[in-house]
């Protein structure tokens, strides 16, 4: 079990930082904040921090989890000290000794905002689309392109009209088995009349296998 866990937000301009950037930025922020992180042993020691299910670049997160080992003066003061040392968009919320390992995260709740510059379709149409049994999308990775069924990646998709040409959807994604980048919800619509002009994605929180908030 890691010693401590930090809940943090990654929003606004910070959503464009890569996972490595975030790790590096936190390592420095801990140092700036006067909280010395423990380092691994060996030839090339690195600070002991790890982030559960790193966010894809461009996606905001409100309940991100970072496990760390450090000599903390007071766990309660960690967020305040860190926030004085973090860049815009990265914000520490609270730190605590965790009860469960990050590997027990099962699900993630996402909020997807579909923007339609010329008026949004009825939310039911989006919900119907994402209720289909098969939703083929082409997944691109370094290894090449593979076709997957997006429907296997989420448990539920609930959409509502958010006004101003926007439809907001709450989606519970499978975070454990084969997590997908939420951008595929946009690309799935690319060839349809439901194609948005833009889709913003936010990960609200992690859930355990019983759909309770993951601590």
């Amino acid at each position: 079990m890691p010693k401590y866990r930090l809940v943090f937000q990654k929003t606004g301009s910070a959503k464009w930082l890569s996972h490595l950037d975030v790790m590096h930025t936190f390592a420095r922020a801990f140092l700036r904040a006067g909280i010395p992180l423990k380092h691994s042993e060996g030839f090339n020691p690195h600070p002991k921090i790890s982030i559960a299910h790193p966010l894809p670049v461009g996606v905001e997160g409100y309940g991100e989890l970072l496990d760390f080992e450090a000599d903390c003066p007071s766990l309660e003061r960690v967020p305040e000290l860190l926030n004085a040392a973090l860049p815009v968009g990265l914000r520490a919320i609270r730190a605590y000794p965790p009860q469960a390992a990050a590997s027990e995260i099962a699900l993630a709740l996402y909020r997807l905002t579909f923007e339609y510059d010329n008026g949004a379709p009825a939310p039911e149409r989006l919900a119907d689309f994402f209720a289909q049994e098969t939703i083929p999308v082409v997944k691109r990775s370094k290894k090449g392109e593979t076709e997957i069924n997006l429907r296997d990646a989420y448990l539920s998709f609930v959409a509502r009209d958010a006004g101003e040409g926007r439809i907001e959807a709450e989606v519970v994604l499978d975070a454990a088995r084969a997590p997908v980048n939420p951008k595929y919800f946009e690309s799935a619509l690319a060839e349809t009349s439901l194609k948005p002009n833009y889709m913003a994605a936010t990960r609200e929180k992690f859930l355990d296998s019983t759909e309770k908030d993951f601590e």
């Binding site: 910070a14 464009w16 890569s18 930025t25 461009g58 815009v88 968009g89």
Partner: peptide, 10 residues
């Protein structure tokens, strides 16, 4: 590398 264009650094 979109982070080149956003500012907001410490």
């Amino acid at each position: 590398k979109p982070a080149r264009y956003t500012g907001g650094e410490y």
